[in-house]
Simulated scan of single mutants.
Amino acid sequence: MIEGIFLLLGSNLGDKKKLLNSACSIINSELGPIMGRSSLYETAAWGKTDQPAFLNQVIEVNSALSAAEVLKCINNIESRLGRVRTEKWGARIIDIDILYYGHEIIETENLTIPHPGIPDRRFTLAPLVEIAPDFIHPVLRKTNTELLARCSDKLEVNIIES
């Protein structure tokens, strides 16, 4: 069982809160038990900014699945919840990213862990710090708290529900 698998969930279309809750329910039953959940955060869109604000949440999961199997599982969950991939950083009904897979460093054609965007995205770091402030990024050797303090992203990230 791998502990400390951190996933970022996001949605900016439809009933965002319901979609995040549905994703969590499926993850808990098919991937492994959810050990921690951040508050819900609202953030302006990052990358492609002419779209609705996102609701984001970070969860911590324990799973017996390999990182590749976790990726396959979350892609399947996204599809089941209605995600259709059309454009990079475009609006989406659900998005699930693997941030950390324990303390492993993985570089394959389809998967890079830790997620390369972690240090540059406040909407990822704020909820990560809430549930895992002292978790050490295995490549950068900094805690999530240290990464957030150094993050240059100035997008506003607001807790909307604890």
Rank of each mutant, 00 (worst) to 15 (best):
P119K: 14
K72R: 07
L99A: 09
A67V: 03
P133L: 06
L71V: 00
I98N: 03
H137T: 11
K88D: 07
E69P: 01
S29R: 15
I34E: 02
V157T: 14
Q57M: 11
V157I: 11
E104L: 10
E109H: 14
C24S: 09
G90K: 07
N110P: 08
A23K: 05
I2S: 09
A64V: 12
A53T: 14
M1I: 13
D15G: 01
A91R: 08
E87A: 14
I93V: 15
V139K: 13
D50V: 11
I93N: 09
E161T: 05
L31F: 08
L13T: 00
E104A: 12
R121F: 09
R121S: 07
I2Y: 10
S29Y: 01
G82Y: 04
L155H: 15
H137C: 09
G32E: 06
R92I: 11
A126E: 14
S11Y: 00
E30L: 09
N62R: 14
R83S: 03
E42W: 04
D50M: 07
N56R: 03
F123N: 06
R92S: 08
N158A: 11
I160L: 05
G14S: 03
I96C: 06
K154T: 14
N62K: 15
P116H: 03
G117R: 13
A44Y: 03
R92V: 09
E130R: 12
A23S: 05
P33F: 12
A45Y: 13
G82T: 00
L20G: 08
L55D: 04
E109P: 05
K154M: 10
V61I: 10
L55H: 08
I94Q: 10
I96M: 03
G82P: 02
I77M: 01
D134E: 15
E104S: 12
P127K: 05
L55G: 01
S152V: 15
Q51K: 02
N28E: 06
C151M: 13
F123D: 09
E109W: 08
